[in-house]
Design a protein around this nucleic acid. Structure first.
Length: 268
DNA sequence: GCCCAGGTATAAA
DNA sequence: TTTATACATGGG
């Protein structure tokens, strides 16, 4: 069963730009799991073909791909602020910020610390295969409740190293209600950051990634070593806050642009 | 073997 | 308050 929509974004740019770690491409078809459902999606002419019902499209995927948000407008606003940012947005004009599940974003970016994207994907895949629900040809993301029952030894097979204890800390706090993830959608930004940082293994960078990708708090600008370097070289006159309520979207353009063109910001 | 990877906890200055 | 180091693992 398929559902077809007009092409509104670029699959590769959106699904392989370092914001999500569960999507993979085979012969032009992208496969991923979110909200407990497997989706296969591909482009044909000016349409996108999704392997889902109309109901699931409306209930899940329309929101997941942030299709109510006007990226052309945001892009033009950001582009008018800064010439380099305009270049970065034009380099990958089809990027969208996905609305991932909060718990998945939290785990993914805990796994991301001091790590590389290729291995993050491998760890997340193994995490799902070992502790998620089997959908037949894919696995769901493990629930916090399930993970909270595990030990560091149980997590050994996924080879996430020292991050295992951080994942368990997060799972326990979420499962026992010590942290209410849903409250972070509307909480004051600084309070939300402080809530997340209570979790062992979550610092300022991970917290902002979780808020941006898991809660769509687009005013967040996750700042790590890579982005600091990009900012210093490409945006010497700007601070992250200069990009306003769409800082997070600006950050995604900059991150992707820098990652695909490392020569642009090599330090001398 | 060495260095690095979408960082953070911890100890020490 | 800021700065240095360990941390698990795998790829270049």
């Amino acid at each position: 069963m398929n559902y077809v929509i007009p092409k509104k974004f670029d699959l590769t740019e959106t699904l392989d730009c370092g914001q999500a770690f569960r999507w993979s491409e085979t012969d032009g078809v992208w496969s991923g799991v979110a909200y407990g459902k497997l989706l296969k999606i591909t482009e044909k002419n000016d349409t996108m073909i999704m392997s889902c019902t109309k109901e699931d499209y409306e209930k899940i995927w329309h929101n997941y791909f942030d299709l109510d948000c006007d990226y052309e407008k945001i892009k033009s606003e950001l582009s008018s602020m800064n010439k380099i940012l305009a270049e970065a947005a034009e380099f990958a004009p089809g990027i969208r910020i996905l609305r991932q599940e909060p718990w998945e974003a939290l785990c993914s970016f805990i796994f991301s610390q001091n790590n590389n994207i290729k291995r993050i994907k491998k760890i997340v895949a193994s995490f799902c295969e070992n502790f998620g629900e089997n959908l037949g040809c894919a696995y769901t993301f493990p629930t916090a409740e399930r993970v909270s029952q595990l030990t560091e030894e149980d997590l050994a097979p996924i080879k996430c190293g020292f991050r295992a204890k951080y994942i368990l800390s997060a799972a326990n706090m979420v499962a026992n209600g010590e942290i209410d993830l849903n409250s972070l959608f509307t909480m004051n930004l600084d309070e939300a950051r402080n809530e997340l940082i209570r979790i062992k293994g979550v610092g300022p960078k991970v917290a902002d990634c979780v808020l941006l990708y898991g809660f769509h708090r687009t005013e967040c600008f996750p700042l790590d070593v890579w982005m600091k370097r990009a900012m210093n070289v490409l945006f010497p006159e700007n601070t992250p806050e200069d990009f306003g309520v769409n800082s997070g979207i600006a950050q995604q353009y900059i991150f992707h642009y820098s990652r695909m063109n490392p020569h642009l910001f090599e330090e001398k």
